[in-house]
Design a protein around this nucleic acid. Structure first.
Lengths: 230, 230
DNA sequence: TAGTGGTCTAGACCACTCA
DNA sequence: GAGTGGTCTAGACCACTAT
């Protein structure tokens, strides 16, 4: 047999796993053997196997060899939603409005997230995103002025705060948290639903090195779902 | 300058993006130039750039060159939870109980998902997962007997249905959907919360080629959140 | 200590796509 | 048509770790 592309090899190996020919937890042949068997370079086999390991299907260890993951704890790729694109992808018209903008010292709970002191005045924003003029998602956001000095001049007319930050502020890492929450009065009013309804929350906090740049929450009304292929 | 590992190069390029030296949307030097600049092989540069493109930070086109993504629609890796591991990772004791098992023709809505006819009897399971003897997640599941003939003999004593399927049934692809739902009476009772509470739903459907193997819903009580690093 | 994966190199050809 | 990324090869050395 001759199969020389890393994609074809990946598929080949995937089928061996899925068919059970390579049983869960079992050790599979080494790269050199596979390369000989398929008549291709070791690097090609390596790339195919690495790809499967990235997806959690294989576990690779030096000297230990490559094993099929005993529990295929697969990893999914989740594309982090950018509201505007979500709306436009549905073929609807995107629009957003800043409903509230204030500069004040946040509550202790938020300060803990931002890592700011009790004396530091931060920027708070509430933005409502529309699809075809109907509320689509509600965004709340705190911005740390220490990390983003330019924030004071911005008025967020053109871009949503989300996009403005993403475009303007460097950040080194972030955390994404997904959960189900009860709609508070503020959220419910904005989304035109009743308080207490189940809303889908996307919580995103980003750091620039060790400083929190911003923490944002997106609330989606019932019916919204985040989808991913496996 | 000499930087010859793909990881070091990735970091180097990442910093150029994050610092704004490579502006959003702008075109960056070609692989050959970069390889010369850093004194390494083109393949190494290629690997670093491909890695960043995988994360949605770069957009690469033949002849068009490599551009920094204008909107860093980053992609997150989400590890699909396996309840037992989630519980054990928290240092708690895992246990589960099948609360209901029946074989019947599902409602039209479920039939649409499973792709079975009105005459086909399927297996339905309700499983409650515990952490330290407290309800942790509630699982409902339909299994297509056409795809999984062995299901008739199984009793799911040792493993949860989830794990049993994952270990026993080959599947080629799947779909994951995350959403916030109101707890139905059944869910509320199982999780010992009040009906109507916001629960986090993980809906997973898997196919073996074109046949739906199983469709499963996991419901988590308030407080649960799925986390991912960016 | 030896086996296995991790990685780098230098060179080559190909495929896509922009001008 | 030509430039750029996509990929493959053959060979080499290294790093981790199981035995």
């Amino acid at each position: 047999m001759r199969t020389n592309s890393h994609q074809a090899l990946r598929l080949e190996f995937l089928q061996r796993i899925q068919s059970g020919e390579w049983a869960l937890g079992s050790r599979i042949p080494g790269e050199i053997q596979l390369a000989e068997h398929y008549g291709c370079a070791r690097a090609t086999v390596n790339r195919a196997l690495r790809s499967l390991a990235d997806d959690g299907l294989l576990i690779r260890k030096r000297k230990g060899g490559t094993h099929v993951s005993p529990v295929p704890a697969r990893r999914a790729r989740l594309t982090i939603p950018i509201v505007r694109e979500e709306v436009e992808a549905m073929g609807q018209v995107y629009r957003h409005a800043v409903r509230r903008r204030s500069t004040r010292v946040p509550a202790a709970r938020v300060r803990a997230t931002l890592g700011t002191d009790a004396g530091v005045v931060c920027v708070y924003l509430e933005t409502l995103h529309f699809a075809n003029d109907r509320p689509f998602a509600f965004e709340t956001r705190w911005i740390n002025p220490i990390a983003v000095p330019a924030i004071r001049e911005e008025r967020f007319a053109e871009l949503s705060a989300n996009e403005w930050l993403v475009r303007s502020v460097p950040f080194s890492n972030g955390r994404l948290r997904l959960s189900a929450e009860k709609a508070t009065k503020t959220i419910a009013t904005a989304l035109e639903i009743s308080a207490g309804t189940a809303v889908f929350q996307v919580d995103r906090t980003t750091w620039d090195k060790d400083v929190v740049v911003t923490t944002m929450q997106l609330y989606y009304p019932p019916g919204y779902q985040l989808t991913s292929q496996l």
